[in-house]
Design a protein around this nucleic acid. Structure first.
Lengths: 142, 142
DNA sequence: TTGCGTGCAAACTTTTTGCATAAAG
DNA sequence: CTTTATGCAAAAAGTTTGCACGCAA
């Protein structure tokens, strides 16, 4: 586990389930749903329960170890490990194949500042997603 | 009802429920949830059913009369009337009072183009939300 | 008269909660 | 020993679906 995460976990009680969830999240290249985390971990730890995964995720979100991601199409939430600020990024979501393709770094930061100045809103975060057709899908149907 | 909407409704069968939903959506200054639409209309039309509202909304989304909005906090979808491209805009969502404050027009359009060029992704839409503390809430707790 | 719209109830999906037990500190 | 984490089952919340009937075209 990364030092940054260990840091955030300081003062928290240790738990095997929690570490399995974190470890799984770290392997993902795209946000993942709670029930997928559950099914995945169940393969080698068949007594973990879905509600435990929900509770672990809730805790990790509060500790700012995990971010919640919501998409337009789907009513269920997805989660991903928080990357450090240098690798903070967003996704393009293909409306055909639903793949989430990361965009290198965050183009919104400057915008954020100018809007904060203009509106007096104390901005603490943002969400930005692009929708369209990825290269693969564009080629296929042509 | 606006001409633009009438245009999109051409070929669709008329329905009182549908028109009530559209009319209610037009009165909103922020996105609204399906059950709020339902409760609202029920006050003067007590036999409308929730599933009807869901079906109407689904149809209106397909006709591009209504947009689905999802927020990070809430697992339920919100909906708003599609504004024409000149008034397309986004929201700042106050993490304290949950109010959604519209941002005048859309600062993302140019970004979109440059990212499309860079990545070869055929971008058809985007989603952008800011989170923070609104003026009101910032004053209160100080 | 044909087929879409609607109400109602039931089903389904995702998420939350209560409670008794197990594990951590 | 005290507190937090967990499993299980049940409940809640949001959304979808089947079916019979009503209404628009």
């Amino acid at each position: 586990m990364q030092n940054e995460i260990s840091e955030k976990l300081k003062g928290q009680r240790a738990s095997k389930n929690r570490d399995e969830v974190i470890s799984l999240l770290q392997k993902q290249s795209a946000p993942i749903a709670v029930d997928d985390i559950y099914e995945n971990i169940k393969q080698f730890n068949n007594k973990i329960s879905l509600s435990t995964v929900y509770r672990i995720i809730e805790k990790l979100v509060n500790l700012n170890i995990v971010h919640k991601v919501t998409t337009l199409d789907d009513n269920k939430a997805l989660y991903e490990i928080v990357k450090d600020s240098h690798t903070h990024h967003h996704y393009m979501i293909c409306v055909k194949c639903k793949k989430m393709i990361p965009i290198d770094d965050c183009p919104v930061k400057e915008l954020e500042k100018s809007i904060a100045d203009k509106t007096g809103f104390n901005i603490t975060g943002h969400k930005f997603e692009l929708y369209g057709e990825c290269k693969n899908c564009a080629q296929k149907h042509s």
